[in-house]
Design a protein around this nucleic acid. Structure first.
Length: 230
DNA sequence: GGAACCAGCCGTCACATTTC
DNA sequence: GAAATGTGACGGCTGGTTCC
């Protein structure tokens, strides 16, 4: 859940509100009430997929496992990349951090095992400004992203590959390279996904505060406008 | 102490999407 | 259209917690 510690109920200058995120993060929210904006949680073109409904039953034959797996993959509709989604969100307003195209400064550090603290993200929405000040995960970079894995040798020029053994070695090398790249891509993808989820959580917190304030404002206006009974 | 369970992370595969 | 890249799904591993 999200807990809110309001500090400033005045209607003049933007009030700063502390929002406690489910993850324990504390978010400072300022200037919450502004013009309406498109929904945040809407993920463009996302279709909810009920994977659970494809759960196997006991009587399912083994041969159906493969079919089920294939069907499931067919059913799963792909959403746009997290980078794309976040960048689209950020284009809604200046508040959402863009996912960097390139690795952060730390991730470009020299190739050796290093424990690093990822800098805390600062989130900001078009409704105001707020920061995420909670603890961020610490990542361990084990391998250089540019170096080839151990045992992988740069191939000779294609024209020099003649024997089946050389071809096999080339295929193996390509596979190793592909696996290494995919490994890094998966890491990056997971990092983006975490960032995306954090961003959504932050916006949820902001919108909840916004909603609460609007309700309060509505009640106030009702009190003002309602005819006095006495 | 160790078995059972859970959550989180990672590597890999398969396929979708993007880039050239 | 092929190559490169991104990501969902899956299974394995590991550390923490709980129960016996």
């Amino acid at each position: 859940m999200v807990s809110v510690a309001g500090s400033g109920t005045g209607r003049g200058s933007p009030a700063v509100t502390l929002v406690q995120l489910p993850s324990g993060q504390t978010v400072h929210v300022r200037g919450v009430i502004q013009t309406p904006q498109p929904s945040v949680i809407q993920s463009p073109q996302i279709q909810t997929v009920q994977v659970a409904t494809i759960a196997e039953t006991d009587e399912s034959a083994e041969s159906e496992d493969v079919i089920d797996s294939h069907k499931r993959r067919e059913i799963l509709s792909r959403r746009p990349s997290y980078r794309k989604i976040l960048n689209e969100l950020s284009s809604d307003g200046p508040g959402v951090p863009k996912i960097e195209e390139e690795k952060s400064e730390e991730e470009r550090t020299p190739p050796h095992i290093a424990t690093m603290a990822v800098p805390t993200s600062i989130y900001q929405t078009s409704t105001g400004q707020y920061t995420a000040t909670g603890d961020m995960p610490t990542y361990q970079i084990r391998a250089p992203t540019t170096a080839l894995p151990q045992g992988v040798v740069m191939a000779a020029s294609p024209g020099s590959l003649h024997s089946p053994q050389q071809l096999a070695e080339e295929a193996t090398r390509k596979r190793e390279l592909r696996l290494m790249k995919n490994r890094e891509a998966a890491k990056e993808c997971r990092r983006r996904k975490k960032e995306y989820v954090k961003c959504l959580e932050s916006r949820v917190a902001v919108l909840e505060v916004q909603n609460k304030k609007l309700i309060e404002e509505l009640e106030t206006l009702k009190d003002i406008c309602s005819p006095k009974t006495d």
